[in-house]
Simulated scan of single mutants.
Amino acid sequence: MDKLQQGIDRMQEQKFEEAAKLFTGVIEENPGEPLGYINFGNLLLHMQEYERAERFFERAISLDDTAATAYYGLGNVYYEQDSFTKAQNQFLQAIEKGLDEADVYFLLGMSLVQQDYHKLALPYLSRAAEIDPNDVDIQFQFGLCLAQNEQFDEAERVLKALLDIVPEHADAFYNLGVICIYKEEAEAALDYFNEALKVQSDHMLAAHAKGEVEKALNGK
């Protein structure tokens, strides 16, 4: 097993100091190759050392401006610091350079959601959901984005499919209830809010919404 893979393994095992030594060795042996810098950048990202991680990813890009995973790593650095416009630009670069994975589309979509560009986010979240149909976070955020774009039937389909994966997803039940309110299906909304509260008794949004629907149904 080469040093690069050993370093990746140590990083996954949370043995960060050992991983750092291995990645340093990779860089010293191959200073003109971007992979050592990219993986050291990923390690620093895990350790929340964002300024150092940024420098390593930028160094990788200076060595190979087609290194898609370096742009992805740099996007993560900015995303973790709530610099969503800068993150968006890096994720777009990663995709343009050939990265075709669920995570990059998801984080690009979420960068746009964080800036309230829900319509622009939708195709990227859709692509992420298509690539990884079993990822709970991706499917949930895709469902939310559909609802925010008033595509209620499709949002309902996605959130119901999510409940097949995670039957006790309180937020999915809550948002299905909200969709039912928009569709003027008060009784169905009440059922979903009750389901959310069964799963999570302190779900404040569901409790509030349930109270409002009950008032409306009782004519108060």
Rank of each mutant, 00 (worst) to 15 (best):
V199K: 02
Q5I: 13
Q90E: 07
E168S: 11
D202Y: 05
A189W: 00
K198S: 10
D64M: 10
K86M: 08
A216W: 08
E168W: 03
A94D: 04
N194T: 09
K21P: 12
N194P: 09
E187W: 12
F193L: 13
N175W: 05
Q81A: 04
E184N: 12
L190R: 06
F16S: 07
Y72V: 06
Q151V: 08
A20Y: 11
L43V: 03
K220P: 08
Y50Q: 06
N175G: 05
M1L: 15
N76G: 11
E156K: 13
D65A: 14
G177S: 10
A216E: 13
L92S: 15
D65H: 07
V113M: 12
M204Y: 13
K215R: 09
D116Y: 15
G32K: 09
I131P: 00
D116W: 14
C180D: 13
E156A: 14
L163P: 01
F84T: 05
L45G: 02
F56S: 14
E130I: 08
K215I: 06
G98Q: 06
E58P: 09
D64L: 09
M47Q: 11
F142K: 00
P34N: 01
S111H: 03
G7R: 01
T24R: 13
Q12E: 14
A67I: 06
L144Q: 06
K160Y: 13
L190Y: 09
E29A: 15
A94E: 04
A216N: 14
V77P: 00
M11A: 14
N39L: 07
E101M: 10
G211K: 01
G75Y: 00
D135M: 01
A60R: 00
A172E: 02
I179N: 00
V77L: 03
R55A: 14
D191R: 13
A129R: 00
K97E: 07
E58M: 12
E58W: 07
D103S: 14
K215C: 08
